[in-house]
Design a protein around this nucleic acid. Structure first.
Length: 455
RNA sequence: GAGGGCAUAGCUCAGUAGGUUAGAGCGACAGUUUGUGGCACUGUAGGUCGUGGGUUCGAGACCCAUUGUUCUCCCCA
């Protein structure tokens, strides 16, 4: 047996990391629950048919496929070989791979809604926190297995959903202690820009280019637009659009001038203003920023789009989302619109680590270590320990009668803050020595006093 | 899908122009006379230098291949 190792792009999480991650998950979960979202979990694997063709050509390649079982059945060997030829020529073969690992949470959710829409109470609000898998080449901050954390409302056109979701973002990050800017734009505004610049068919080219603005800068975006066949005057219009600056009100005023009479554009602006105004007297308003350079790569968005950035950290977006018209059309259930957001848990973790935002109490595991100083002594210790455990206090009894030295070192390494020492003397007196391992102070307590001690 | 870097003890790494028995720190374990830890000191264990070829009198070092890993681009979270 060679050295054990992890599959590429996967990670083990040790106790300390799991505790911190759970802190993030629990914060998000509790806020989502308080907004009336319901949990949903779907299987790690889906039928390949469910996933193929939903993520574009690039995405399809990154789906982890699962090899069918039983291919070594001698009766099937000839057909298996034949089918394998298909795979080699880039096609899929249902008789070789019928299933695949979940690539994101949105398509499984859409599949779920398509299967159950008749039973669901609309609007249906669900949240989902589960791992997804991609056969991507891993690099910094990108893994083959990672968690997504989504909340969606489907079956409603109301902008109140956008208001709630932006509020949800602001609440979660406030609770986590991360100062954020929630950027908002509207795909209708981008659509209007495309119409003004010579045609709705240019919409995808324009949004893909604009989406890169942060990364590559204005000049490169102009180059890219030119490469995609836009004229100088069209690019000039887009440049003017991208340069719009100022407060939210000032930006909207400038945009209105640029958009003019365009109906789609004005609808987009109106929606944006509606959401912004709704938050007017709330703490959310301080975090909301109209940002017309926000595009989002995904093309299924049709209305308001979001992206969240941490203000005090060098980090890309830590959340994003938006409105889409037709979640389940691909599963032959039309007319179910929705709006959703997602949290980038790994990045949130990195930001919180960088800014040291994890509360210290997230780390504590065992609170009390009972020393083991012999059979009779440890029996008393064991029963006292169980009483503490019943009260919800995490406690351990050292596994064998060892020297003090060893038992102290164990407590030290596990960062256990209290030691309870019961030796022959204490055994006779029905008492214990309780030692605070951080301060070094110790006191003698009766057994009953120990049980009512405030750890 | 395209292109770089790295691979030596459990971990982090050093190994100078190829030259005897491959090193350090941390960690682990044991001890410094068994009821008070973190420190310090002493000692012990642990490596066929990722794998397979090649060059050479001689390879951890140079060349080729292979596997793993990491980073960048594409794309995305």
């Amino acid at each position: 047996m060679s050295k054990p190792s992890l599959p590429q792009g996967t990670r083990d999480f040790n106790a300390s990391v799991v505790r911190k991650r759970n802190y993030i998950f629990q914060t998000i979960r509790s806020v989502m629950e308080s907004y009336g979202f319901q949990p949903l979990e779907t299987p790690a694997m889906e039928n390949l048919d469910t996933l193929m063709g939903k993520y574009g050509d690039e995405g399809d390649k990154l789906i982890f496929k699962i090899l069918n079982n039983g291919l070594d059945n001698p009766a099937k060997q000839d057909s298996a070989k034949l089918e394998f030829e298909k795979i080699l020529s880039g096609k899929n073969s249902k008789s070789l791979t019928e299933r695949a690992l979940r690539y994101d949470l949105t398509i499984p959710f859409a599949r779920y809604v398509a299967m159950n829409h008749a039973q669901l109470t609309m609007p249906f609000k669900r949240y989902q926190i589960q791992p997804v898998w991609r056969a991507d080449r891993p690099q910094k901050g990108r893994y083959r297995e990672f968690y997504q954390c989504d909340a969606d409302v489907v079956g409603s056109y109301s902008l109140l959903n956008e208001v709630e979701l932006s509020n949800l973002y602001a609440t979660v990050f406030k609770q986590l202690g991360i100062d954020v800017t929630i950027k908002m734009n509207n795909r209708k505004i981008l659509a209007a820009l495309a119409e003004i610049c010579g045609g709705a068919d240019k919409m995808v080219d324009i949004t893909v280019a604009i989406d890169k603005l942060d990364k590559i800068g204005l000049d490169k975006v102009k180059e890219e637009l030119s490469g995609r066949g836009l004229s100088d005057s069209q690019i000039n219009t887009i440049e003017n659009y991208l340069l719009i600056d100022g407060s939210n009100d000032e930006k909207i005023a400038s945009l209105k001038k640029l958009i003019g009479e365009n109906a789609t554009g004005n609808k987009g602006i109106e929606e944006l203003e509606w959401v912004l105004n709704y938050h007017q007297n709330s703490f959310v308003a301080n975090h909301l920023q109209a940002d017309f350079t926000l595009a989002r790569g995904l093309n299924y968005y049709t209305g308001i789009i979001f992206e969240v950035k941490a203000n005090n950290a060098q980090m890309g977006s830590i959340g994003g989302g938006g409105r889409y018209d037709d979640l389940t059309g691909t599963f032959d259930v039309p007319n179910i619109p929705g709006v959703g957001i997602s949290f980038g848990v790994d990045r949130i973790y990195d930001v919180m680590e960088e800014l040291q935002l994890f509360p210290a109490e997230v780390q504590t595991g065992t609170k009390v270590l009972f020393f083991n100083l012999g059979d009779a002594e440890s029996k008393v210790a064991y029963s006292l320990m169980q009483s503490l455990r019943d009260k919800g206090i995490a406690a351990e009894l050292f596994h064998e009668n060892s020297k003090f030295d060893k038992q102290f070192k164990y407590a030290d390494k596990k960062q256990i803050p209290y030691a309870v020492i019961i030796g022959s003397k204490e055994l006779l007196e029905n008492s214990v020595v309780l030692k605070n391992l951080i301060s070094g102070d110790q006191q003698s307590l009766s057994n009953n006093e120990l049980l009512s001690f405030a750890f």
